[in-house]
């Protein structure tokens, strides 16, 4: 990818194998800082696996074999001796469905702080408020911070997960189809937050929705069956695709 920005994540020769499937094939990709990079492609093409490799959640699936290098700030994420929890704190994850932790709204956000060793009460309270505001949730929950997070609506839960992820002060936000379970209003809110957050964070967004990619992306990476078919600035890839497969996908207009 020809780009002037300094990449924050560099992926080199990444191959992921499942027992009977070559999920990702020779992925070579730079992800630019403070931009929204969209991983686009049909369901089951390996986008999510690529995203999960970035913070080594692939460790949870022992059947996956991963080869190659992924560098964040010149640290090799895939190096077996790296402190994986430290690497993961550089990235906040937003999954397809929100998974609020089984505790109060306040504690959900404070959880990451606790893991970081921040326990001073006023400091924690200040930060929880700060991140809930960043995720545009504060006004809706400020009167019930200590009730269970699972009572929130699903859209609120997703914003809570965003606040929770921001609380560990990551550099990158990994979002795996974060709006696929949400109603249009909540979707809009999340998308709006993303636009604001890219000032401070790098966002990697997985989606299969072309329209969402158009709305949000600075860069688009089109993936098809584990291969990067085409990647570049959003207007190049979506408006003037060079590859046949991309043209097909774009003209389907999903």
């Amino acid at each position: 990818m020809v780009m002037t920005e300094t990449p924050i994540i560099r992926i080199r020769d990444l191959n992921v194998h499942a027992p009977d499937n070559h999920i990702l094939k020779n992925i070579h990709l730079d992800i630019p800082k403070n931009k929204i990079t969209v991983l686009l492609g049909p369901s089951g093409c390996g986008k999510t696996t690529l995203l999960k490799s970035l913070n080594r959640l692939t460790d949870l699936y022992p059947e996956l074999k991963i080869k190659g290098n992924i560098y964040i700030d010149d640290d090799d994420i895939l190096h077996p001796e790296r402190d994986v929890s430290q690497i993961r704190q550089k990235m906040g994850l937003l999954s397809q469905r929100p998974y609020p932790l089984p505790m109060s709204i306040f504690k959900n956000v404070a959880y990451g702080l606790k893991l970081k060793g921040i326990t001073k009460k006023d400091e924690v309270e200040r930060r929880v408020q700060e991140y809930l505001k960043k995720a545009a949730l504060w006004d809706e929950v400020k009167d019930r911070l200590h009730s269970s997070a699972e009572q929130l609506s699903i859209g609120q839960q997703q914003r809570l997960c965003l606040a929770r992820g921001l609380a560990v002060n990551p550099e990158v936000i990994l979002a795996d189809e974060p709006t696929s379970a949400l109603d249009p209003v909540s979707t809009q809110m999340i998308e709006h937050q993303f636009q604001e957050l890219k000032e401070e964070y790098t966002i990697v967004l997985v989606t299969h929705m072309l329209r969402q990619a158009r709305r949000l992306a600075d860069y688009v990476v089109f993936i098809y069956y584990g291969k990067i078919i085409e990647h570049g600035p959003v207007n190049e890839v979506l408006d003037n695709p060079k590859e046949e497969l991309t043209k097909k996908y774009v003209s389907a207009g999903v």
């Binding site: 959640l57 929890s85 993961r88 932790l101 089984p102 929770r164």
Partner: peptide, 27 residues
């Protein structure tokens, strides 16, 4: 236990044991 819950805790930087102690046991 949904695997997404584990992923959520781990991606916040918890160790496996912290995830079990604070999240899975509570859930």
């Amino acid at each position: 236990m949904p695997i997404g819950l584990k992923e959520a805790s781990l991606s916040l930087g918890s160790t496996y044991w912290e995830c079990i102690k604070h999240v899975l046991l509570r859930k």
